[in-house]
């Protein structure tokens, strides 16, 4: 702006419907920003679903977040930020006609994008190997549902793979329809246990320890009522011997986590849509890289580099908001809500 408007007259890259390169550049940028606005709104819908579901079902999120790996999330954030930096450097290199640096920076950006997808693949394949899928493909509890009595109100019951059929029958025999015996674990081992497929949800899902978003007496009373109805103590600590079913049982309230598959549906939608954007970014960046290798860009025509860079920064931007979502649910929420 404010630059020499005579710039670029007769430039072979100037489309005939533009007065000059400056106008062409700014028009392209404006169009890209309009597209980015629609991208923001596209993701806003999914973020909205996530947020509404989180506030309506805090216990599901508290439970589900144990399956999210914050370390990989943090590494992925760093990878994306680094590639965002190289994308910005690529634009600068294009503007300075530094072709070597432009190619190097674009290649580094593509490398970062691929690294991000590799880490996502590791995360996804681990979840899928545990049966933690989306919607009807969610098989984490499948074997348990088959053993439920026909008249059960509970369609999905949490039960770690370590619980024997005997323990379950004992629990069902004791008249507790919605509570199953399960061995207790140390809270420190929870995340690890979750990742290795042996999470005991009972440790942090006792009715009386359930999360609150606000101190609502009606809410609390209802919980105590529900707990009492199960014949479970409404007070106590995570003592392994605190249950009613012998050795180390702890009450499970499967009602609270039975919709876990919904959480992971939103999770896969949100991270999957972001992953598709990363894929599209790789395609676009590769296209720009080919252009750079052919020496198509100069200080008056670097619009493709700039616009693909803007797109790539938006992908990074969305991840910046996705990442604290996972840490928020992964660490803080499990403490702040109890």
């Amino acid at each position: 702006m404010g630059h020499d408007h005579a710039h670029g007259h007769g430039d072979p890259n100037l489309a005939h419907h533009f007065d000059n390169m400056q106008q062409q550049f700014e028009a392209g940028k404006l169009g890209m920003w309009l597209f980015l606005a629609t991208e923001v709104l596209l993701f806003a819908g999914l973020f909205c679903a996530y947020t509404v579901y989180r506030f309506n079902n805090p216990e599901v999120f508290k439970f589900a977040s144990q399956f999210l790996n914050t370390t990989w999330g943090a590494i992925n954030t760093m990878v994306l930020l680094a590639s965002s930096f190289t994308a910005a450097m690529a634009v600068r290199a294009a503007q300075l006609r530094n072709r070597q640096q432009l190619v190097a920076m674009l290649a580094a950006t593509i490398l970062g994008a691929c690294g991000f997808l590799v880490i996502k693949y590791i995360e996804y394949s681990h979840k899928i190997s545990l049966g933690i899928n989306w919607g009807k493909q969610f098989h984490y509890y499948e074997h348990t549902t088959q053993e439920l009595p026909a008249d059960s109100k509970v369609d999905i019951v949490t039960r770690p793979p370590t619980v024997s059929v005997e323990a379950m029958e004992q629990a069902l025999g004791a008249g507790s329809r919605t509570s199953l015996a399960a061995p207790a674990r140390s809270p420190q081992g929870l995340t690890q246990a979750a990742l290795s497929g042996h999470l005991n949800p009972s440790e942090h899902l006792r009715p009386h320890e359930k999360s609150h978003d606000k101190d609502d007496s009606g809410y609390a009373e209802a919980e105590h009522g529900a707990a009492a109805a199960h014949g479970e103590p409404t007070h106590g600590t995570a003592s392994p011997a605190g249950g009613e079913h012998g050795d180390t049982p702890a009450p499970v309230d499967p009602e609270k986590v039975k919709n876990l598959h919904l959480y992971f549906s939103v999770y896969y939608c949100l991270t999957g849509l972001h992953g598709i954007h990363v894929l599209a970014g790789i395609v676009a960046l590769t296209w720009v890289l080919i252009g750079a290798l052919k020496g198509r860009f100069d200080e008056n025509y670097f619009t493709p580099v700039d616009l693909v860079g803007l797109y790539w920064h938006l992908v990074d931007l969305i991840w910046i908001y996705l990442f604290p979502w996972s840490t928020w649910f992964g660490f803080s929420c499990s403490r702040c809500c109890t």
Binding site: G45, C48, V52, N56, S217, E221, A222, A226
Partner: peptide, 24 residues
């Protein structure tokens, strides 16, 4: 996006006591 989120969150948690009491 903020408007969208705010309106969607308007009645969130509002029904909890009633629903939970009924379930209990």
């Amino acid at each position: 996006a903020a408007l969208f989120l705010t309106l969607a969150l308007y009645d969130t948690v509002e029904y909890h006591p009633a629903v939970i009491n009924q379930a209990a």
